[in-house]
Amino acid sequence: MNNLSDLLTDSQFNIVSNMLSLGIASMLFTTFFLVLARDRVLPRYRLAVLISATVTGIAAYHYFRMFDSFNHAFSTLDGAVNNAAIYNVGYRYVDWLLTVPLLLMEIVAVLALTRQLQSSLLKRLVPAAALMIILGYPGDAKLDIWGIAPSVWGLLSTIPFLYILYVLFIELSKSLVRQSPGVQKKIKQLRLLLIATWGVYPIAFIFAMNSDGFVADQFVAREVGYTIADILAKCLFGLLIFSIARMKSAEDDAEFAKTEFRD
């Protein structure tokens, strides 16, 4: 957790507050949509859609907590900033610890692979995702654990990140040959979306790592960057999963396609 002082201007406060509010709205209403729309795909693909809704639902809860923590840390009373309050950066990491493995599960679930192949992929992806988040937290929060520098924690968290990319781009690609061209294209878009959004996190990590204490501009940039990346990596990702589930449902069932995709 980071001790915050009265270094945020009114405009900086409003930027972070509005971005966290946008995060809440995006996550919450994406969850509502995915839950209500789950019957628009065949039963075999509904698990992937419900996992997507779970991801955004978990994120919505944690964005509520972050919004409350931020406002408490910077609440004003008679023009005085509450310097003693603490903004809990751990909320993001608890969120990621739960949602990042689920994001990877969405990809595997929506492809409707054989049980053996699903199990093989998940046994590698889920532990790697959890390890990536666990190793990244001490560095971002600048915790003094065993005297290890934040940069070392960042480097350690990069190892499972690279392994996840290997599984997604090398191992998963072997199973895509059995998918239709349309589905293959969507899966490639999902993987590129993950790289683009996940790439924001190490960049923000590196900027924060190079400063001691609280720096307002870096704090604002980090919160804005993390929130935008979260919205894309969770909401847009979940909607792409839903579109893949719809596409595969239409491919599997001609009657479904006629009902759902009328001219």
Rank of each mutant, 00 (worst) to 15 (best):
F161R: 11
R262F: 15
L135T: 00
A208I: 01
V100R: 04
P150W: 10
F214L: 04
P150C: 13
G182N: 11
Y137F: 13
T197P: 08
Y137H: 09
F70S: 00
T54G: 15
I195T: 09
I195S: 09
A59W: 02
E171S: 12
I159P: 09
D230N: 07
D6P: 12
V49E: 02
A245P: 09
V110L: 10
S175V: 15
G57N: 02
Q118E: 13
F237Q: 00
I107A: 13
A37E: 04
E171Y: 11
Y61A: 11
Y166R: 08
I170Q: 12
G213P: 03
A233Q: 04
C235F: 00
L240G: 01
N2T: 12
Y45D: 10
V177E: 15
A216L: 03
N18R: 01
R115T: 14
L20Y: 04
R262G: 10
G154S: 10
M66G: 01
P127K: 15
T227Q: 04
S157W: 05
A257V: 10
K186P: 13
L122F: 06
Q118L: 10
I244F: 09
A250Y: 06
L4A: 07
L111C: 14
N82E: 07
P101H: 05
L232W: 05
L97V: 07
L98S: 00
R191I: 15
K258Q: 14
N18H: 11
D68A: 12
D217I: 05
P101Q: 08
Q116T: 15
Y137L: 06
P150Q: 08
L168K: 02
R38Q: 11
K142P: 02
L135W: 01
N83K: 12
S151N: 13
I195K: 06
A257W: 13
L162W: 08
A254Y: 11
H62R: 01
G90V: 05
S120D: 08
F33P: 07
E106K: 04
F32R: 00
P202H: 00
K142S: 09
G225I: 03
V16W: 02
V49G: 08
R124W: 13
E106V: 07
F207Q: 03
N83F: 07
V100T: 00
W153A: 05
A221R: 01
I195H: 09
D95Y: 00
Q218Y: 12
R38Y: 10
L176K: 12
I244H: 08
V126F: 08
Y93H: 03
E260P: 07
L236N: 01
F67Q: 01
V220S: 06
F29A: 02
L42N: 10
D217G: 04
R44Q: 14
K174Q: 15
I187C: 02
E260T: 14
K123A: 14
S157M: 09
I206W: 14
L34Y: 03
A233H: 05
M66A: 04
L34G: 02
A229L: 03
P202W: 03
F214W: 06
V89K: 07
Q12T: 03
F205C: 01
K258Y: 14
S120N: 14
L117R: 15
R44E: 14
I51C: 06
L239K: 05
G23R: 06
G90T: 06
L194N: 00
S151W: 12
F242Y: 07
D78S: 09
V55T: 01
V183T: 15
R191K: 15
I15M: 08
R246N: 08
I164F: 14
A233C: 11
L232V: 01
T227S: 02
I206Y: 14
